[in-house]
Design a protein around this nucleic acid. Structure first.
Length: 484
RNA sequence: CGGGGUAUAGCGCAGCUUGGCUAGCGCGCCUGCUUUGGGAGCAGGAGGCCGCAGGUUCGAAUCCUGCUACCCCGACCA
């Protein structure tokens, strides 16, 4: 086997492994514009499946889709102070059109709170108009200094929900409900366990009162914010004058929320489940669930293919997403190729199988080879796909637990923890820490060890009593980790 | 934005120090035959404005100058 065909090992260079894996699996390719990528069909279909799963959940909770323009007038961006301060450095601007300089330059949206706020102020008059529950599927732009395919690109695809409510408690309930939907989707469909929690003020969305996130652990021990949900209070209502006349005939400002997940989830999928063989996809999300490969020399091929087609049809019939690879490449090449692309299950059918009315199934998650009777193949495959789905989740959860640490109480101990892990060639992972609530204490952690607060988990595995930095009484317990 | 690096076939690279090239290697690609239960073998073949623009020279992938792009490492981020 040529060395060139193998991927860089995850342990040797995780970042190089990731870049090779997503390109070899044809999920993406680099575009000619800095920081922009092309979503190739394999990658885009993953996004389509994520969209389908989430969209159904949004609809089921009363949301409807709409679409707002990509170009946002500069004056709109200015209306919420924190918002413009947060996003200004990363905005691309349109300054010229039709050969003439524009009177007011237009930003390519980094998110749509402002333009949606503007529209809400026109649409909302009375408490009877509330709540407004909208979502949009869109592309957004953020000119990041350092880009990484799927995780951080200049343009990305996402979904942004924007809701307006008559009172605070209803808006807060909405932001929590959507966070739960994200976590449920990630865990059930993507087989990625998530930690739900609240962002600290320094990590909060620009313009939010409270931000919440779901965080997942990647295989290099780093944390990835996989989804966010914000209670925006009346900040945008004030900026855009979104008022309604309440039952008591008082003019009031609405309370808004926003929440989103992006194509970053594709990166999470790869970084959570991928291994030395390449990408590995959970069956529920995999564009191809079963790859069928015929075995045998040409003189025996006809007999094999006869049965092969029957099995293929049976799986199709059972709604299994099955594909066959009848190319001229050798079986061994195909095995490696489809494992690299992440197909959860392989079905091999050769002359010996046809004789005995069996086939060989090979699991992507464990590598296990199973001989299966062809009479009941569809049922067997479906059961096995569910088993793989469950196993991938269980494994990802076990991995996170194994690399989550709660014995660290002081910054000195955190230094020691990181040094020890590094010396042992192990991952530093996540560290549970107490925090007094002071921004300076949080900033010091980042400064010293490059760990940032991920979130304040709703159900921490333990409560920490003292601030990791200053030693004062802890007001919060949070997860610290290196993050993407 | 600071520090470092790279730019030669679709991909990965060698050649540059010491100018002489009709630019080479591996993988991939095309054709044919033989192969087929873990990355097949043999034979033949296609494919290059050596990042761009200047300069030095009889002669530049190679030396000089200036651009541009990308990558890696640090400060900002779904």
């Amino acid at each position: 086997m040529s060395e060139q065909r193998k991927l860089t090992s995850q342990s040797e260079d995780f970042s190089a492994w990731y870049l090779e894996a997503i390109q070899r699996a044809e999920l993406m390719d680099y575009a000619p514009v800095r920081g922009c990528i092309v979503f190739r069909p394999e990658g885009y279909e993953l996004w389509e499946r994520i969209q389908a799963g989430l969209d159904a959940r949004f609809k089921a909770t009363g949301h409807r889709n709409a679409y707002f323009p990509m170009l946002i007038p500069e004056s709109f961006m200015q209306k919420e102070k924190d918002h413009i301060e947060g996003f200004n450095p990363e905005l691309p601007w349109v300054t010229e059109a039709g050969g003439e300089k524009l009177e007011e330059r237009l930003a390519l949206r980094p998110t749509s709170e402002t333009i949606i706020g503007h529209m809400y102020s026109k649409w909302i008059q009375s408490y009877r108009d509330l709540p407004v529950l909208l979502n949009q599927w869109a592309n957004v732009f953020r000119w990041e200094k350092r880009t990484l395919p799927f995780l951080r690109t200049s343009e990305f695809l996402w979904q942004e929900g924007h809701t307006a409510h008559a009172d605070e408690s209803e808006a807060r309930a909405e932001s929590m409900r959507m966070l739960d939907i994200y976590a449920e989707f990630a865990e059930r469909e993507m087989a990625i366990p998530m930690v739900r929690g609240q962002k600290t003020p320094s990590e909060r969305f620009a313009g939010a009162v409270d931000s919440y996130s779901i965080e997942g652990m990647m295989k290099d021990g780093k944390a990835l914010q996989a989804g966010t949900s914000h209670y925006l209070g009346q900040n945008f209502a004030r900026g855009f004058d979104i008022k309604f006349l309440d039952r008591d005939n008082q003019l009031k400002l609405v309370h808004t929320t926003s929440w989103g997940v992006s194509t970053r989830l594709i990166g999470a999928l790869v970084m959570v489940h991928g291994d030395e063989k390449g990408v590995a996809l959970p069956p529920r999300l995999a564009p191809t669930q079963v790859i069928m490969i015929p075995i045998g020399p040409p003189k025996l091929r006809e007999r094999v293919m006869e049965k092969f087609d029957v099995v293929f049809a049976a799986l199709r019939q059972a709604n299994v997403r099955v594909r066959s690879d009848v190319s001229e490449a050798t079986p061994g090449f195909k095995f490696n190729e489809w494992e690299m692309r992440g197909v959860p299950l392989r079905l091999e059918l050769g002359p010996r199988d046809v004789e005995s009315n069996h086939c060989v199934l090979v699991r992507r998650d464990t590598g296990e080879k199973i001989t299966a009777n062809l009479d009941t193949i569809a049922e067997r495959v479906k059961t096995m796909l569910e088993d793989i789905q469950g196993n991938m989740y269980t494994r990802a959860l076990a991995f996170r637990l194994a690399h989550s640490h709660r014995h660290v109480n002081t910054l000195a101990e955190l230094h020691r923890h990181i040094a020890e892990k590094e010396a042992a060639g192990a991952l530093a992972g996540w560290v549970l820490a107490g925090w007094c609530g002071d921004d300076a204490c949080e900033a010091k952690i980042k400064e010293e060890v490059k760990f940032t607060s991920r979130n304040i988990p709703f159900d921490p595995p333990a409560k920490k009593s003292h601030c990791i930095t200053c030693g004062a009484q802890a007001a919060f317990t949070l997860w610290l980790a290196k993050a993407y």
